[in-house]
Amino acid sequence: MPLEAREVSFRYGRGEWVLRRASLSVCAGEVVGLRGESGSGKTTFARVIAGYLRPQEGEVYLDGAPLPRHCYNPVQLMHQHPEKAVNPRWRMRDTLAEAWDVDDATLDALGVDASWLGRWPNELSGGELQRICLARALSPRTRYLIADEITTMLDAVTQAQIWKAILVRVRESGLGVLAVSHDRSLLERVADRVVDVEEIAAAR
């Protein structure tokens, strides 16, 4: 059953509409690429479909019912800057434990070295931190991953590593992914289909 944004509209305060009646669905085991220029509303859409922002109009549905709130969110959002997505005063072990009891198989699959777990965020590189964030997001209860420019700040080798790991989860456990990026060649590599943010929204 898919994750669906149905005619969602969003604006910050009383500002202009950033999204106007935007609709998109992602199925289990599918990778959808979302492309667009900077300022076109990609990140806002990612936050809406992940349940971080509540649209003023429209609704996000999971399996035909509104996205559940006040429980573990099966739609997990990942950000461009991992250093801003972890508590700087927690060791990596605690950051992971907050989400779930991460098993060794997941850590291995993502290339997370056991020695990183005792470290603080400022002792790890961006690529290492992003892999920690991915491990945190990939709990067995996660069914959809919203990846908002998650490898934009990383080198090519690390980018390929991270996406390979995600694609294995897509194939093996039917994870659905919305890959948000400005990089066409990346989306062509990882996505089953690519849509432009202008196409999904009725107007801006």
Partner: peptide, 24 residues
């Protein structure tokens, strides 16, 4: 060569492992 071949437009090949840390 690994960096070059890892570009999405060139093969998107990942190599395993990590860059070593300064203390190791």
């Amino acid at each position: 060569r690994a960096l070059w071949k890892a570009l999405p437009s060139n093969g998107f090949l990942a190599i395993p492992g990590n860059q070593p840390t300064p203390d190791n």
